[in-house]
Computed example of a mutant assay.
Amino acid sequence: MTKLSGAKPRIGLLGTGPWAARTHAPALAAHDGVEFVGVWGRRPEAAAELAAGCGTTAYDDVDALFEACDAVAFALPPDVQAPLAVRAAAADCHLLLDKPVATTVAAAREVADAAGLAGVASVVFCTLRFAEPTAGWIEEQAAAGGWFLGEAHWLGSLFAPGSTSAYAASPWRRDKGGLWDVGPHVLSVYLPILGDVTEVTSVDGPGDTRHLVLRHASGASSTATLTLSAPPEAAEAALTLFGERGRAAMPAWDGAVGAFGGAVDALLEAARTGVPHGCDARFGARLTEILTEAEAEQAAGPTGPSEPAA
């Protein structure tokens, strides 16, 4: 695996939107274990503004940023992220990816394959896997085992009438909805605890709402209701497991900046040890496969009962 250079690895940021400005850039600027060397964006003026606010350098040439870095973090739409991640891996940069890695299976697998071929570490920033105390809770429940079923809902209100969210104008979120935006978060909790998904059923709800029923390799089943269209008063994210020891409710977490710092730590550890993290690009590709299956299964619609013979 490509090793990190020096005691303080150099990391760059690709992306200048609200997610980059509110989470990635502040976390990288505050992280004692990395040197935040620069920002690249599709809008040079936004890159210059974000870089100036963080005391780092704006890059007009993304390949020049790759050359200056040991690792790069992504805060870009998924299908912009994927081909740039392949280029970054080829430039020997470790990858801190956003979820979903891509919205096509081919593109997500290409990222995972590129990271493997280049021997670079990768981490996908699924917030719950790195936030405290949810990260510890996931590990505890995975170790405990004996779970029978899971129930989850992630009710966002980005698309609710009157929403002022800075993320509401995101074209890819408008196109793909809560299934692809918050679905990876729920799956990133279920899979390490209940096992891989072996069967998916998907049903539409109001707005962009999707109701998923999942079968897992452990034999457990789970449900997930995902939306970005809930009324603000109903917005909530929760996940509960049921099993041999009763029930376990996932604890609350506080914000994404600290969680992103945890994801940086995880990437550095994977790069230094050569041991892949459980939420790496290969895992991210699996999430894309599951979400694609849910999308296709829902699009096909119910087959309904067969017609009786004449």
Rank of each mutant, 00 (worst) to 15 (best):
K3I: 08
S5T: 15
K8G: 07
K8S: 13
P9W: 00
R10I: 00
L13K: 01
G15P: 13
A20Q: 05
R22N: 14
A29R: 15
A30H: 11
A30Q: 12
G33P: 14
G33W: 07
G33D: 12
V37G: 10
V37E: 00
W40Q: 01
G41T: 01
R42Y: 11
E45V: 14
A47D: 04
G53D: 04
T57D: 01
Y59I: 04
E67Q: 15
E67C: 14
A68W: 01
A71L: 05
A73Y: 03
L76F: 03
P78E: 02
P78F: 02
Q81N: 10
A82V: 02
V86D: 03
R87S: 12
A88H: 00
A89N: 02
C93H: 02
T104P: 14
A107L: 08
A108R: 02
G116M: 00
G116A: 12
G116Q: 10
G119I: 06
G119T: 06
S122F: 00
V123S: 06
F125V: 06
F125R: 05
L128W: 05
P133Y: 05
T134K: 09
A135T: 05
W137R: 10
E139R: 15
E140C: 01
A142D: 04
A144S: 09
G145A: 12
G145I: 05
G146W: 03
G146N: 11
W147D: 08
F148H: 11
L149P: 03
W154E: 02
W154F: 11
W154Y: 13
L155E: 02
L158I: 04
F159E: 09
F159D: 10
F159P: 12
P161M: 03
T164V: 13
A166V: 09
S170Q: 07
P171N: 10
W172E: 13
D175G: 12
K176H: 12
L179C: 10
L179D: 09
W180T: 04
P184Q: 02
H185I: 08
L187R: 11
P192F: 07
L194D: 00
L194Q: 02
L194I: 08
G195W: 05
G195K: 11
D196L: 08
D196P: 09
E199N: 12
T201P: 09
V203P: 08
G207V: 07
T209I: 07
T209N: 08
L214A: 05
H216P: 14
A217W: 00
A217H: 04
G219Q: 04
A220F: 06
S222T: 04
S222L: 00
T223G: 13
A224C: 06
T227M: 04
S229G: 06
A230Y: 00
A237L: 06
G243E: 13
E244T: 10
R245Q: 14
G246H: 04
R247S: 15
A249W: 01
M250T: 09
A252H: 07
W253Y: 13
V257D: 05
G261M: 09
G261P: 10
A266D: 10
E269T: 15
A271E: 04
T273E: 07
V275S: 09
V275A: 13
D280N: 15
A294K: 03
E295R: 15
A296W: 01
E297A: 15
E297C: 12
E297Q: 15
Q298C: 15
Q298S: 15
A300C: 09
P302K: 07
T303K: 13
A310S: 12
